[in-house]
Design a protein around this nucleic acid. Structure first.
Length: 368
DNA sequence: GTTATTTGACCACG
DNA sequence: CGTGGTCAAATAAC
Protein backbone atom coordinates (compact mmCIF):
# COMPACT_ATOMS: atom_id res chain seq x y z
CA UNK A 1 0.00 0.00 0.00
CA UNK A 2 2.63 2.32 0.89
CA UNK A 3 4.36 1.46 -2.23
CA UNK A 4 1.41 2.32 -4.32
CA UNK A 5 0.97 5.59 -2.62
CA UNK A 6 4.64 6.22 -2.93
CA UNK A 7 4.46 5.49 -6.57
CA UNK A 8 1.69 7.94 -7.09
CA UNK A 9 3.30 10.63 -5.10
CA UNK A 10 6.47 9.87 -6.92
CA UNK A 11 4.73 10.18 -10.20
CA UNK A 12 3.45 13.55 -9.27
CA UNK A 13 6.83 14.63 -8.24
CA UNK A 14 8.15 13.26 -11.44
CA UNK A 15 5.68 15.27 -13.42
CA UNK A 16 6.63 18.30 -11.52
CA UNK A 17 10.25 17.75 -12.22
CA UNK A 18 9.53 17.17 -15.85
CA UNK A 19 7.68 20.41 -15.97
CA UNK A 20 10.70 22.10 -14.56
CA UNK A 21 12.78 20.42 -17.16
CA UNK A 22 10.54 21.69 -19.85
CA UNK A 23 10.89 25.18 -18.65
CA UNK A 24 14.59 24.85 -18.44
CA UNK A 25 14.72 23.51 -21.92
CA UNK A 26 12.76 26.48 -23.05
CA UNK A 27 15.19 28.69 -21.45
CA UNK A 28 17.96 27.00 -23.21
CA UNK A 29 16.17 27.63 -26.43
CA UNK A 30 15.86 31.21 -25.52
CA UNK A 31 19.54 31.40 -25.04
CA UNK A 32 19.95 30.26 -28.55
CA UNK A 33 17.93 33.16 -29.75
CA UNK A 34 20.02 35.55 -27.90
CA UNK A 35 23.09 36.45 -29.87
CA UNK A 36 24.79 37.43 -26.70
CA UNK A 37 24.70 33.97 -25.40
CA UNK A 38 27.95 32.32 -24.72
CA UNK A 39 29.04 28.79 -24.31
CA UNK A 40 29.04 29.06 -20.60
CA UNK A 41 25.47 30.08 -20.73
CA UNK A 42 24.58 26.99 -22.58
CA UNK A 43 26.63 24.91 -20.35
CA UNK A 44 25.07 26.33 -17.31
CA UNK A 45 21.62 25.86 -18.67
CA UNK A 46 22.47 22.42 -19.84
CA UNK A 47 23.86 21.58 -16.47
CA UNK A 48 20.68 22.66 -14.83
CA UNK A 49 18.66 20.72 -17.27
CA UNK A 50 20.84 17.81 -16.64
CA UNK A 51 20.31 18.04 -12.95
CA UNK A 52 16.63 18.18 -13.49
CA UNK A 53 16.72 15.12 -15.60
CA UNK A 54 18.83 13.41 -13.11
CA UNK A 55 16.16 14.03 -10.58
CA UNK A 56 13.51 12.97 -12.96
CA UNK A 57 15.34 9.82 -13.71
CA UNK A 58 15.75 9.05 -10.09
CA UNK A 59 12.13 9.79 -9.51
CA UNK A 60 11.11 7.53 -12.33
CA UNK A 61 13.33 4.90 -10.98
CA UNK A 62 11.76 5.21 -7.62
CA UNK A 63 8.31 5.06 -9.06
CA UNK A 64 9.19 2.02 -10.95
CA UNK A 65 10.69 0.42 -7.94
CA UNK A 66 7.66 1.23 -5.93
CA UNK A 67 5.19 -0.16 -8.38
CA UNK A 68 7.42 -3.07 -9.08
CA UNK A 69 7.70 -4.10 -5.50
CA UNK A 70 4.01 -3.87 -4.96
CA UNK A 71 3.49 -5.99 -7.95
CA UNK A 72 5.64 -8.65 -6.59
CA UNK A 73 7.28 -9.42 -9.85
CA UNK A 74 10.64 -8.18 -9.13
CA UNK A 75 14.02 -9.60 -9.73
CA UNK A 76 14.59 -12.60 -11.90
CA UNK A 77 15.03 -11.44 -15.41
CA UNK A 78 15.81 -7.89 -14.67
CA UNK A 79 19.42 -7.40 -15.44
CA UNK A 80 19.40 -4.20 -13.58
CA UNK A 81 21.53 -3.51 -10.67
CA UNK A 82 20.86 -5.96 -7.95
CA UNK A 83 20.50 -3.37 -5.31
CA UNK A 84 17.66 -1.74 -7.02
CA UNK A 85 15.80 -4.74 -8.20
CA UNK A 86 15.48 -6.04 -4.73
CA UNK A 87 12.33 -4.11 -4.51
CA UNK A 88 12.81 -1.36 -2.10
CA UNK A 89 10.07 0.39 -0.44
CA UNK A 90 10.48 3.30 -2.68
CA UNK A 91 12.48 6.28 -3.41
CA UNK A 92 12.39 7.32 0.12
CA UNK A 93 14.63 4.52 1.05
CA UNK A 94 16.89 5.08 -1.88
CA UNK A 95 17.13 8.74 -1.28
CA UNK A 96 17.73 8.27 2.35
CA UNK A 97 20.38 5.73 1.69
CA UNK A 98 21.97 7.99 -0.81
CA UNK A 99 22.06 10.82 1.58
CA UNK A 100 23.38 8.71 4.31
CA UNK A 101 26.00 7.24 2.18
CA UNK A 102 29.01 9.28 2.88
CA UNK A 103 31.75 7.14 4.16
CA UNK A 104 33.94 8.32 1.38
CA UNK A 105 35.41 11.21 3.16
CA UNK A 106 38.64 11.07 1.36
CA UNK A 107 38.50 12.13 -2.19
CA UNK A 108 36.24 14.31 -4.10
CA UNK A 109 33.44 11.97 -4.35
CA UNK A 110 29.93 12.98 -4.03
CA UNK A 111 30.27 15.92 -6.25
CA UNK A 112 27.92 16.10 -9.13
CA UNK A 113 29.45 14.68 -12.18
CA UNK A 114 28.42 14.72 -15.75
CA UNK A 115 29.93 14.18 -19.08
CA UNK A 116 29.55 16.27 -22.11
CA UNK A 117 30.43 15.05 -25.47
CA UNK A 118 31.73 17.70 -27.65
CA UNK A 119 31.72 17.00 -31.23
CA UNK A 120 33.86 19.10 -33.34
CA UNK A 121 32.66 19.21 -36.89
CA UNK A 122 35.96 19.78 -38.45
CA UNK A 123 37.23 23.00 -37.16
CA UNK A 124 38.09 22.98 -33.54
CA UNK A 125 39.55 19.58 -33.41
CA UNK A 126 42.82 21.16 -32.69
CA UNK A 127 42.50 21.19 -29.00
CA UNK A 128 39.95 20.94 -26.34
CA UNK A 129 36.68 22.53 -27.07
CA UNK A 130 36.08 25.75 -25.34
CA UNK A 131 33.27 25.59 -22.93
CA UNK A 132 33.61 29.12 -21.82
CA UNK A 133 35.51 28.51 -18.68
CA UNK A 134 39.09 29.00 -17.83
CA UNK A 135 40.82 25.79 -17.01
CA UNK A 136 44.25 24.94 -15.94
CA UNK A 137 45.66 21.63 -16.87
CA UNK A 138 47.15 19.80 -13.98
CA UNK A 139 47.74 16.40 -15.34
CA UNK A 140 47.57 13.98 -18.15
CA UNK A 141 47.31 10.29 -18.05
CA UNK A 142 47.25 7.48 -20.45
CA UNK A 143 44.13 5.53 -20.03
CA UNK A 144 44.04 1.86 -20.52
CA UNK A 145 42.30 1.01 -23.70
CA UNK A 146 42.17 4.55 -24.80
CA UNK A 147 44.12 5.72 -27.69
CA UNK A 148 44.57 9.19 -26.44
CA UNK A 149 45.63 10.39 -23.06
CA UNK A 150 43.18 11.99 -20.76
CA UNK A 151 43.72 15.51 -19.70
CA UNK A 152 42.91 16.70 -16.24
CA UNK A 153 41.87 20.25 -15.74
CA UNK A 154 40.77 22.30 -12.87
CA UNK A 155 39.28 25.70 -12.70
CA UNK A 156 41.81 28.42 -13.04
CA UNK A 157 40.34 30.13 -10.06
CA UNK A 158 40.65 27.21 -7.82
CA UNK A 159 43.31 28.68 -5.67
CA UNK A 160 42.09 32.21 -5.75
CA UNK A 161 38.43 31.53 -5.33
CA UNK A 162 38.38 28.00 -4.25
CA UNK A 163 36.36 26.89 -7.20
CA UNK A 164 36.07 23.13 -7.06
CA UNK A 165 35.17 22.59 -10.68
CA UNK A 166 37.27 20.15 -12.60
CA UNK A 167 37.03 18.44 -15.87
CA UNK A 168 38.60 15.61 -17.73
CA UNK A 169 39.00 15.76 -21.41
CA UNK A 170 39.55 12.83 -23.59
CA UNK A 171 39.41 12.36 -27.26
CA UNK A 172 37.37 9.55 -28.49
CA UNK A 173 39.31 6.67 -29.86
CA UNK A 174 37.13 6.32 -32.83
CA UNK A 175 36.13 9.81 -33.64
CA UNK A 176 38.84 12.31 -33.45
CA UNK A 177 36.32 15.03 -33.53
CA UNK A 178 34.62 13.88 -30.43
CA UNK A 179 35.71 14.89 -27.01
CA UNK A 180 34.54 13.39 -23.85
CA UNK A 181 34.50 16.07 -21.28
CA UNK A 182 33.62 14.99 -17.83
CA UNK A 183 32.87 17.76 -15.46
CA UNK A 184 32.88 17.46 -11.78
CA UNK A 185 31.78 20.08 -9.38
CA UNK A 186 30.04 23.27 -10.11
CA UNK A 187 31.82 26.47 -10.66
CA UNK A 188 31.71 28.76 -7.73
CA UNK A 189 34.05 31.24 -9.20
CA UNK A 190 32.89 34.46 -10.66
CA UNK A 191 33.70 33.73 -14.19
CA UNK A 192 30.51 31.93 -14.69
CA UNK A 193 28.33 33.89 -12.45
CA UNK A 194 26.99 35.80 -15.32
CA UNK A 195 25.63 32.68 -16.65
CA UNK A 196 22.09 33.53 -17.35
CA UNK A 197 20.89 36.77 -16.16
CA UNK A 198 19.31 37.88 -19.31
CA UNK A 199 15.70 38.27 -18.68
CA UNK A 200 13.34 41.06 -18.49
CA UNK A 201 11.47 41.71 -15.35
CA UNK A 202 12.99 41.02 -12.07
CA UNK A 203 15.85 39.25 -13.57
CA UNK A 204 18.43 38.11 -11.22
CA UNK A 205 17.39 39.05 -7.81
CA UNK A 206 21.00 38.46 -7.32
CA UNK A 207 21.76 34.88 -6.86
CA UNK A 208 22.16 35.26 -3.18
CA UNK A 209 23.95 32.10 -2.59
CA UNK A 210 26.60 31.67 -5.09
CA UNK A 211 29.72 30.83 -3.37
CA UNK A 212 29.58 29.19 -0.04
CA UNK A 213 26.18 27.80 0.33
CA UNK A 214 26.46 25.63 -2.69
CA UNK A 215 29.53 23.90 -1.56
CA UNK A 216 27.74 22.70 1.43
CA UNK A 217 24.51 21.81 -0.11
CA UNK A 218 24.52 20.70 -3.67
CA UNK A 219 20.85 20.15 -3.64
CA UNK A 220 20.31 23.64 -2.44
CA UNK A 221 22.40 24.89 -5.20
CA UNK A 222 20.47 22.89 -7.65
CA UNK A 223 17.23 24.21 -6.47
CA UNK A 224 18.59 27.65 -6.77
CA UNK A 225 19.57 26.81 -10.24
CA UNK A 226 16.13 25.66 -11.05
CA UNK A 227 14.71 28.80 -9.82
CA UNK A 228 17.11 30.58 -11.98
CA UNK A 229 16.05 28.81 -15.04
CA UNK A 230 12.41 29.10 -15.05
CA UNK A 231 11.42 30.74 -18.19
CA UNK A 232 12.18 29.14 -21.38
CA UNK A 233 11.31 28.34 -24.82
CA UNK A 234 12.01 25.21 -26.60
CA UNK A 235 11.88 23.55 -29.81
CA UNK A 236 10.17 20.58 -31.02
CA UNK A 237 11.73 17.35 -30.14
CA UNK A 238 13.35 15.69 -32.96
CA UNK A 239 14.91 12.44 -33.41
CA UNK A 240 18.44 11.62 -32.94
CA UNK A 241 19.99 14.26 -35.01
CA UNK A 242 22.61 15.14 -32.69
CA UNK A 243 23.77 17.96 -34.66
CA UNK A 244 21.78 20.10 -36.86
CA UNK A 245 23.31 22.88 -38.64
CA UNK A 246 20.06 24.44 -39.08
CA UNK A 247 19.45 27.85 -40.35
CA UNK A 248 19.00 30.58 -37.97
CA UNK A 249 15.41 30.01 -37.75
CA UNK A 250 14.83 29.17 -34.24
CA UNK A 251 11.27 28.39 -34.51
CA UNK A 252 10.18 26.81 -31.48
CA UNK A 253 7.73 24.30 -30.76
CA UNK A 254 6.68 23.43 -27.37
CA UNK A 255 8.97 20.97 -25.93
CA UNK A 256 7.04 18.03 -24.85
CA UNK A 257 8.22 14.80 -23.61
CA UNK A 258 7.42 11.92 -25.79
CA UNK A 259 7.13 8.68 -24.09
CA UNK A 260 10.15 9.18 -22.25
CA UNK A 261 10.28 8.34 -18.75
CA UNK A 262 10.48 4.66 -18.68
CA UNK A 263 13.17 4.22 -21.14
CA UNK A 264 14.46 0.78 -21.08
CA UNK A 265 16.42 0.15 -24.05
CA UNK A 266 19.58 -1.63 -24.40
CA UNK A 267 22.02 0.29 -26.23
CA UNK A 268 25.36 -1.14 -26.58
CA UNK A 269 25.66 -4.13 -28.72
CA UNK A 270 27.77 -5.85 -26.20
CA UNK A 271 30.37 -5.05 -23.74
CA UNK A 272 32.25 -2.47 -25.54
CA UNK A 273 33.41 -0.42 -22.65
CA UNK A 274 35.55 1.44 -24.97
CA UNK A 275 33.13 4.16 -25.38
CA UNK A 276 30.04 4.19 -23.42
CA UNK A 277 29.57 7.62 -24.60
CA UNK A 278 29.87 6.67 -28.14
CA UNK A 279 27.09 4.29 -27.68
CA UNK A 280 24.80 6.92 -26.50
CA UNK A 281 26.08 9.35 -28.93
CA UNK A 282 25.86 7.18 -31.87
CA UNK A 283 22.78 6.88 -33.84
CA UNK A 284 20.24 5.31 -31.72
CA UNK A 285 18.12 2.90 -33.58
CA UNK A 286 14.63 3.94 -33.93
CA UNK A 287 12.63 4.66 -30.93
CA UNK A 288 15.34 5.06 -28.53
CA UNK A 289 14.95 7.51 -25.83
CA UNK A 290 16.86 10.02 -27.65
CA UNK A 291 15.61 13.22 -28.84
CA UNK A 292 17.32 16.34 -29.51
CA UNK A 293 16.11 19.58 -30.61
CA UNK A 294 16.68 20.53 -34.11
CA UNK A 295 18.06 23.46 -35.75
CA UNK A 296 19.31 25.97 -33.60
CA UNK A 297 20.48 29.21 -34.67
CA UNK A 298 23.93 28.99 -35.68
CA UNK A 299 24.80 25.54 -35.81
CA UNK A 300 25.57 23.75 -32.77
CA UNK A 301 23.43 21.90 -30.49
CA UNK A 302 23.70 20.28 -27.19
CA UNK A 303 22.55 16.83 -27.02
CA UNK A 304 22.10 16.07 -23.50
CA UNK A 305 22.07 12.53 -22.51
CA UNK A 306 21.55 11.50 -19.03
CA UNK A 307 23.05 8.47 -17.74
CA UNK A 308 22.41 7.99 -14.18
CA UNK A 309 24.74 5.48 -12.99
CA UNK A 310 26.92 5.97 -10.09
CA UNK A 311 29.66 3.89 -11.38
CA UNK A 312 32.76 5.47 -12.72
CA UNK A 313 34.20 4.96 -16.10
CA UNK A 314 34.57 1.28 -16.62
CA UNK A 315 31.70 -0.01 -14.64
CA UNK A 316 29.58 2.72 -15.95
CA UNK A 317 30.14 1.58 -19.43
CA UNK A 318 29.26 -1.92 -18.64
CA UNK A 319 26.19 -0.91 -16.82
CA UNK A 320 25.10 1.21 -19.64
CA UNK A 321 25.55 -1.69 -21.92
CA UNK A 322 23.94 -4.32 -19.86
CA UNK A 323 21.19 -2.64 -18.11
CA UNK A 324 18.82 -0.11 -19.26
CA UNK A 325 20.45 3.03 -20.13
CA UNK A 326 18.73 6.23 -20.21
CA UNK A 327 19.33 8.40 -22.88
CA UNK A 328 17.57 11.45 -23.10
CA UNK A 329 17.10 14.64 -24.13
CA UNK A 330 17.72 17.81 -25.19
CA UNK A 331 18.37 20.94 -26.59
CA UNK A 332 20.25 22.97 -28.84
CA UNK A 333 22.51 25.77 -28.37
CA UNK A 334 24.15 28.08 -30.66
CA UNK A 335 27.12 30.15 -31.13
CA UNK A 336 29.63 27.48 -31.57
CA UNK A 337 30.43 24.79 -33.88
CA UNK A 338 30.35 21.80 -31.83
CA UNK A 339 27.60 19.79 -30.62
CA UNK A 340 27.81 17.91 -27.52
CA UNK A 341 26.20 15.23 -25.64
CA UNK A 342 25.86 15.43 -22.04
CA UNK A 343 25.91 12.47 -19.89
CA UNK A 344 24.98 12.49 -16.39
CA UNK A 345 26.05 10.10 -13.84
CA UNK A 346 24.02 11.03 -10.96
CA UNK A 347 26.44 10.01 -8.40
CA UNK A 348 23.60 8.10 -7.09
CA UNK A 349 21.49 10.72 -5.74
CA UNK A 350 23.56 13.01 -3.78
CA UNK A 351 21.06 15.62 -4.47
CA UNK A 352 17.67 14.26 -4.34
CA UNK A 353 15.20 16.37 -2.61
CA UNK A 354 12.97 13.44 -2.42
CA UNK A 355 12.03 13.80 1.10
CA UNK A 356 8.40 14.49 0.54
CA UNK A 357 7.89 11.35 -1.33
CA UNK A 358 4.49 9.92 -0.81
CA UNK A 359 3.57 12.90 1.16
CA UNK A 360 1.00 15.44 0.23
CA UNK A 361 3.13 18.38 0.96
CA UNK A 362 5.56 17.18 -1.56
CA UNK A 363 7.62 19.62 -3.29
CA UNK A 364 5.46 22.58 -3.40
CA UNK A 365 7.03 24.64 -6.02
CA UNK A 366 9.24 26.78 -3.94
CA UNK A 367 11.12 27.70 -6.99
CA UNK A 368 10.90 31.27 -6.35
C1' DG B 1 59.08 38.73 -13.58
C1' DT B 2 54.70 36.02 -13.87
C1' DT B 3 51.60 32.20 -15.04
C1' DA B 4 50.53 27.94 -17.59
C1' DT B 5 51.91 23.35 -19.17
C1' DT B 6 54.51 19.19 -19.02
C1' DT B 7 55.80 15.12 -16.87
C1' DG B 8 57.05 11.57 -13.58
C1' DA B 9 56.11 10.27 -9.01
C1' DC B 10 52.92 9.55 -5.52
C1' DC B 11 48.66 7.90 -3.61
C1' DA B 12 43.98 6.06 -3.29
C1' DC B 13 40.75 2.92 -4.78
C1' DG B 14 39.03 -1.62 -6.54
C1' DC C 1 48.95 -4.94 -7.87
C1' DG C 2 46.97 -2.39 -11.68
C1' DT C 3 44.51 1.66 -12.90
C1' DG C 4 43.12 6.27 -12.51
C1' DG C 5 43.54 10.84 -10.37
C1' DT C 6 46.43 14.34 -8.24
C1' DC C 7 50.64 16.65 -6.83
C1' DA C 8 54.55 19.18 -7.62
C1' DA C 9 59.06 20.13 -9.72
C1' DA C 10 60.82 21.37 -13.94
C1' DT C 11 60.04 23.56 -18.09
C1' DA C 12 57.84 26.51 -21.46
C1' DA C 13 55.26 30.42 -22.69
C1' DC C 14 53.89 35.08 -21.91
Amino acid sequence: MQDGAGAEGGMQLLLKILADGEEQARRLGELADDPRSRPEHYRGAAARLQCTFGRAAAAAKAVEAASGSSRGTDRSDSPRSADESSGRTAAVAAAAAAQERQPLCKRRKGMPRWTLKFRVPDANLEGTPDDGFSWRKYGQKDILGAKFPRGYYRCTYRTTQGCPATKQVQRSDADLCVFDVTYQGEHTCHQKQRQVAAHGGAQSPPPPSSHHAEQQDPSMQLLMGFKDALKVETEAPHHHDYYDHGPASAPAAPFSFPSVMPFHHHVAGGEAPDNPATAAFSPPPAGSSYFSAPPAVAGSCYDVVFDYDAAPAGARARRAAESSELGEVVSRATGFDYSSSLYHHAELDPHLPFAPFGGPSSHHGPFQ
